[in-house]
Amino acid sequence: MSTAALLEQGFWAFVATLGFAVLFNVPTRMLLICGVAGTLGHMWKRALMAHGIDVVMSTYIGATVVGLVGYTQARFFHMPRLIFTVTGIIPMVPGVPAFETMVYFMRDDIPTGLETLVRTGLIGGAIAVGLVTARLLVSFGDKDDGYNPRGLWQRGMVQFEAGHHKGD
């Protein structure tokens, strides 16, 4: 895949993500970030597929990228993470394979229909597992004790603000 084709794919992924963000009533100041999350995930998926990586693994990595961008931006902007991850994952939903599955079953081509059904399910599962992987990576070390609501990356700041300096 050429760079121009990858950039075109990224542009259309941005448009799709932005459209669904507007549809889901995402706050106006978050629209650009949602679009970037969807664009990055889709471009990673397409670039990996262009280099011979299977569509399921490419989708998993793209979903992980969307999840990482979404979760980190949700924490940075103090917004719900679903704003970024749901809209960002839309360009990777396997709509064409799902449609092909229905067409094969309507034509009574059951073996091919089952093959595309499994492939579609694997792509959907890769999206889910990619988002879960990102969630685990970002929330690693989180405590739910009311004092440290964030992960390891902010504990130093919380302790500093509370007056618990390391030298005290």
Rank of each mutant, 00 (worst) to 15 (best):
A5Y: 14
G10L: 05
F14D: 01
A21P: 10
F24W: 14
N25P: 11
N25R: 15
N25A: 15
V26Q: 05
L31D: 00
L32T: 07
C34V: 07
H42S: 07
H42G: 02
M43Q: 00
R46V: 06
L48A: 04
H51D: 11
H51L: 07
G52Q: 10
D54Y: 11
D54E: 08
V55G: 02
M57L: 13
T59D: 11
Y60P: 02
V66K: 02
G67R: 13
G67K: 14
V69W: 14
Y71L: 06
Y71V: 01
F77H: 03
M79A: 15
M79V: 10
L82D: 15
L82W: 11
L82I: 12
M92D: 07
V93F: 01
V93D: 01
P94V: 03
Y104W: 10
M106N: 13
G113W: 01
G113N: 08
T120R: 10
L122H: 00
L122F: 13
I123K: 08
A126G: 09
A128S: 12
L131Y: 04
V132N: 10
V132M: 15
V132H: 09
A134H: 03
F140P: 11
G141C: 03
Y147M: 03
P149N: 01
L152P: 00
R155V: 11
G156A: 08
E161N: 05
E161C: 08
K166I: 09
